[in-house]
Amino acid sequence: MKKNESYDEFIKGIWRDNPVFVQVLGMCPMLAVTNSAVNAVAMGMASLFVLVGSSFLVSTFRHLIPKQVRISCFIIIIATFVTIADYTLLALVPKVHKELGAFIPLIVANCLILGRQEAFASRYPTRLAVMDALGMASGFMLALFSLGAVREILGDGALFGVKLFGENFEPWVIMILPPGGFLTLGVILLFFNWFKYKKDEFLEDVAAAERGSD
């Protein structure tokens, strides 16, 4: 039972409540750094680190933080983790840090992270909060990666910098420019909503069929 509970908290972030495709949160890094798969994954990893770390601390100290100053406390905690991620990336992978540029410090302003602290971590026990954070962050990373991969393949004919097509591939340049982010995101959201609509329809059919057979 307990195990199922953590599993549910984890899996809901990846699919049912995916932060990007369902909640439509964190759009700024989503559109800005998904011009290549590497950037998308690096951004996802940094966000994962910040989200899990913050959720852990917020949930652990949730009884000690007075309600009136909770948002300030969340922000202090998040900002600390972001700074740690910023310097760590700069020291370990300076090339990736250069590409992501200003978007690492801007993780502080990602509403997904503050949103999870307010809506979940400050109300639930630490174990569930960490599972929730892991799920949400993985969902976020998955979303970033799918956008980054689509844009890099169409716009540069490559994935993770490896050329997929021959010399004659004509890159669809707009895909790696900002409009490409909106186009790709729009198409993916369309698919998600279509899928949800179809699923609801299917469930209704099943329910109707069951009623009919009774």
Binding site: L64, I65, P66, V69, S72, C73, I76, I77, A79, T80, T83, I84
Partner: peptide, 14 residues
């Protein structure tokens, strides 16, 4: 006090 402690710990970590 809460904010001061949070700020202090954060500062030390940074």
């Amino acid at each position: 006090l809460t904010l001061a402690i949070a700020g202090l710990v954060s500062g030390i970590a940074i």
